[in-house]
Design a protein around this nucleic acid. Structure first.
Lengths: 329, 329
DNA sequence: CCGGACGCTGAAAGCGCTTTTTTCAAGCAT
DNA sequence: ATGCTTGAAAAAAGCGCTTTCAGCGTCCGG
């Protein structure tokens, strides 16, 4: 059932049906009524493909994320989807797992389908801007990168000041009287680097200069947190505070500390990052840095929408995280 | 840059370019080489829209979920996306939040865009099959419903036997010596009903007939779990085992029990459901029912793909969950 | 040496819309 | 009564592909 069928049944031309459907141009009330009656009793669904063919935008947004199962990305993607949906867009999603090839494959696919805009969620995607295979696709539609910088003509960023976030955690621990702090780096991203930098700087600010030696590397998981603590305790170094790069890792840190007979926060205070549900499930509930994924997502959507509609001026923005104090520190 | 530009530069017709691009029909090596050279030095991207217009499938799958932020749905959606991506499809996502209007709006949009198939993730979507507004769209493309039944021509289900899952939890608790069991129902879905039914049946099987009176209603959250326990303890009824409908609720149950001075699992054993990361973060780690979202997703993808390619025969399937024993029971 | 088959390529139609252009008729002023 | 204007609706073009069909040259067998 297409527009020709409707036109034939209503005894008008397809352009008239189109005018009725899109509510534009002049149509007499009588003609409009006749078309609408036919429309009502048919189950006609206009083809967005054909509409796209005729030059109208398809109103779809491509969202690239590392892994939607990570709560932080889920929250970001959720808000992006909801907000674009509210604005009449549909969102298409890809979990690249950080695989460059996967990102390129997907970017090609959405370019072929004429996506109206692209949102990259995760600092890892900043690489794509300088990737000769990926960059051409990123020029075909406006791009917004959540949590990372990208240098391309029609691309902007919404950044979170993770350096500041880590510094907030350090300051809080110090205010509690902690002096022997460590920082757990559980992933190799720009964002993790920023946290470490914030940690080191905050220590320097307090007159402690060996911050760089107080960074523990491990994996982003409960087991990762546990291992980091085991290694730390085995080293015999004194510790009374640990800043973690992720709540899930922090929960492993807490678990290992308790297993070693240490009390949290009395003996060792621990902070998480992302203020996820894990922070509330963990016992004791984690003090965590809220980096506001919903706010970031909202800003991404607003920015991308104005980019699509070319209602500038545009600019990248940076937001500040906040510390949420609970029981672990 | 379109196929006409390529054809002109290569000095051939567009049909020849099309043949080269799609690797079909006969083209001499010389002609093919000439076209490919032009192709290589251009940044031509074929239009999937135009290809769709010409009758080819666009290879997009629509996925409806309640809320991607719920880990169980995130795991399901993730696997669906990855598997379809691997098969050359793109997935579009909508979080309906259980809103009928939102589902309908989205179904209309994807129908207009000629989605090749639809996956409904969550038992709540079984309503759509009998919804006069939604059903027409569900007839336009094959549909697979994860975790619920739907009665429509081209629709099939992948079910999890949640009755059995709850029964597994009951049996485990009884084997530990628990006798005064309760079940926490934290949401009003078909799936939650099945769990309660499994709970009641399993009790009956053990000679306990008042299972129906042992169901506690609350919200699906940490607070929900806490409230259920507070109400239960206030009632003065004896309890030594609690079966929960979700890990997150179970974590609240554990927290409230401990706050009341009860030991888990020694005084009261607790089981969760979904075997999510929450079960591992919780202290003590939750014994939980694994309802295998990845397996369900894989089966959905396989089923939907064969539906799309009409390589039958098709049939709905039911899978059995398994109990994962940890420290809480 | 000619007819038919076959391989390669181009021409053209068609997919379902939007939009521009054209047609037509009615209404009005001169 | 003629010419103009105006508004409604039809006609037609165009979007970028795929695919069918037709044309044309070549090769082979009779």
């Amino acid at each position: 059932m297409n527009i020709y069928d409707i036109a034939r049944e209503a005894g008008v031309s397809i352009s008239t049906v189109s005018r009725v459907l899109n509510n534009k141009g002049n149509v007499t009330a009588a003609t409009r009524a006749r078309v609408e009656r036919v429309l009502a009793r048919s189950n006609y669904t206009p083809s967005a493909i054909a509409r796209g063919m005729a030059g109208k935008p398809l109103r779809t947004i491509a969202v690239l994320t590392v892994d939607i199962r990570v709560p932080h990305y889920a929250r970001t993607a959720y808000t992006i989807e909801r907000e674009f949906s509210r604005r009449g867009y549909e969102v298409s999603l890809c979990n690249t797992g950080g695989e460059r090839a996967e990102a390129i494959r997907y970017l090609r696919a959405v370019t072929e389908k004429h996506a109206d805009g692209i949102v990259l969620v995760g600092s890892i995607f900043n690489q794509l801007g300088s990737d000769p295979q990926a960059a051409p696709f990123l020029r075909e539609a406006p791009v917004v990168l959540a949590n990372g910088r990208i240098d391309l003509p029609n691309s902007y960023s919404v950044l979170v000041d993770d350096r500041h976030g880590a510094a907030l955690a350090v300051e809080h621990l110090m205010a509690r009287g902690c002096r022997d702090l460590f920082c757990v780096r559980d992933v190799a991203t720009e964002s993790a680097e920023a946290k470490c930098e914030g940690f080191v700087r905050a220590l320097e600010h307090a007159g402690i200069s060996d911050g760089q030696d107080r960074i523990l590397d491990t994996g982003q998981s409960i087991a990762g947190g546990e291992e980091a603590v085991k290694a730390l305790l085995a080293s015999g170094r004194r510790v009374d505070g640990i800043v973690c790069g992720e709540d899930i890792t922090a929960s492993g840190v807490v678990r290992a500390l308790r297993a070693a007979g240490l009390r949290v926060p009395q003996d060792v205070a621990v902070t998480g990052y992302n203020d996820s549900e894990y922070a509330r499930v963990c016992d004791p509930a984690l003090t965590s840095v809220d980096n506001k994924p919903e706010l970031v997502a909202m800003l991404c959507v607003q920015l991308l929408e104005s980019l699509i509609e070319k209602t500038g001026p545009f600019s990248s923005v940076t937001i500040q995280p906040e510390l949420v104090v609970r029981d672990s520190a």
